[in-house]
Design a binder for these strands. Structure first.
Lengths: 135, 135
DNA sequence: TTATGTGTTATATACGATATAGAACAGATG
DNA sequence: CATCTGTTCTATATCGTATATAACACATAA
């Protein structure tokens, strides 16, 4: 499975699941139409409560990353974006960038660092037909 | 004052203060040696508890952004950075970048967006470090 | 010296978020 | 029918956030 939970991490479990699903989509491991494991199934796999998984799934649905089909199974949605989301993203990104600037990291180093990170995010391509339209 | 508090924001007050101090340093409004207002003083200004301000200050100190002089006043430290901090920053930045990638934003758009954000962060001359010199 | 202001420590309360637990429900599936 | 799905409800326990009050050691200025 593409999800792992670190109980020692201070980050809430439901957020760990939430972020890793987004990461799986970004990296191409999952894409529009991919079916996610059920709440109870995923919960059993990690020995956690299925309500915790539900919380992650519901958040992902509110953010339009996934949706629930009539079969009640969670599936990855078509990518969606809007101005409000971009504005909210900018706020968080700006706060993060300010940390490096405040610590004296040069602008060139920051841009290079972001660029290098983007390399590691989308290692898609391989693995079946990605980008060839929707399944 | 370079700090404002939004009680409607879901972000904790102590984190709002924390992030805005870092932003002030990044933008050059504060730099090494700048004196921050006292906990009780800043708390009174916004009608909040001084323990809340203390929580923000102590976090900033643990992160080496500020320190407390023998006079017990909080002052901005010299910029510091290390590998562990960079690694931790990468993790958070990667999660943030994955959101845009998962939503279908092109790599070029993301880089351009980050570059534009960096314009708004450091409105202090060059980067690399604000001059000023230290006392 | 006295008075004031600083960060620090301690105890206490209140509230929301996180996580767990168990039960029951409607709808789809085989 | 039996099973699985997400959903809803109630309940509990724990932690983080925020406030409140008190007291302390230290530094500063009157």
């Amino acid at each position: 499975m593409f999800i792992s939970i670190d109980f020692a991490d201070d980050k809430p479990i439901y957020l760990q699941i939430h972020d890793q699903v987004i990461d799986a989509i970004a990296s191409g491991k999952m894409f529009s139409g991919s079916v996610l494991p059920s709440s109870r199934q995923l919960a059993a796999e990690f020995g956690i409560n299925f309500h915790t998984v539900n919380k992650a799934y519901n958040l992902l649905r509110e953010e339009r990353y996934i949706q629930f089909s009539r079969k009640k199974t969670a599936v990855v949605s078509e990518p969606s974006m809007n101005e409000a989301l971009l504005q909210e993203w900018d706020n968080r990104e700006r706060t993060l960038l300010a940390e490096l600037v405040a610590r004296g990291v040069s602008r060139q180093d920051i841009v290079h660092r972001v660029d290098r990170l983007l390399d590691t995010v989308g290692l898609s391509v391989e693995n079946g037909s990605k980008g060839g339209g929707q399944p």
